[in-house]
Computed example of a mutant assay.
Amino acid sequence: MPTKRLIPAAALARLLDQTSRALHSLGFAADLFPAQWAALRYFAWAEPAQRTASALARFQGLAVGPVTRTVRTLMMKGYVANVEGRGRGRARQVELTSAGRALLGKDPFNRLSEAIEELDGAQRIALASALEAILRRLQADQVDDANSSD
Rank of each mutant, 00 (worst) to 15 (best):
G65W: 06
A11I: 13
A102I: 02
A29C: 05
G27C: 03
L6I: 06
Y42W: 15
F28N: 05
L23M: 14
H24K: 13
G85Y: 00
D31L: 06
L103S: 03
A46P: 07
L15E: 13
K77H: 04
T97N: 03
L62V: 09
L103R: 06
N82S: 06
R90V: 05
T19R: 07
Q50S: 15
R92G: 00
Q93E: 14
L56F: 13
F28A: 08
P8K: 09
H24Q: 14
F43S: 12
V83Q: 07
P66S: 05
Y79N: 01
M75A: 08
A102C: 01
P48T: 10
A81Y: 01
T73F: 01
F59A: 15
V71P: 03
A9H: 03
A22T: 05
T73H: 07
F33V: 11
E95T: 10
S20E: 13
H24S: 10
A55T: 06
H24P: 01
P48H: 12
Q36R: 10
R69P: 01
F43E: 08
S20D: 12
M76T: 00
L56N: 12
N82T: 06
Q93P: 02
S25Q: 15
Y79P: 04
Q60C: 12
F33H: 11
L74D: 02
T68D: 04
A49M: 14
N82I: 02
A10N: 03
W45G: 14
V80H: 07
L16D: 09
T52L: 15
A10M: 04
G87P: 00
R58H: 13
L16S: 09
P66M: 07
R41S: 11
A39P: 03
G61I: 11
K77S: 00
P48N: 12
G100Y: 08
R86V: 05
T68C: 05
P34V: 07
R88P: 07
R86I: 01
A44L: 12
T68F: 01
A38E: 14
G27R: 11
I7A: 08
W45N: 10
R21C: 07
M75F: 00
Q50L: 15
P8H: 08
L104F: 02
M76D: 06
E84V: 02
M76F: 00
I7S: 03
E47W: 05
G100P: 08
A46I: 04
A38P: 01
Y42F: 15
L23W: 11
L40G: 10
R92A: 13
P8Q: 07
A99C: 00
A57F: 03
Q93M: 14
A44I: 03
L16A: 13
W37I: 07
S25M: 11
G89N: 12
R41D: 14
A11F: 08
G27I: 09
L16Y: 09
G87A: 10
A10L: 04
L104M: 07
L62S: 13
F28R: 09
W45E: 15
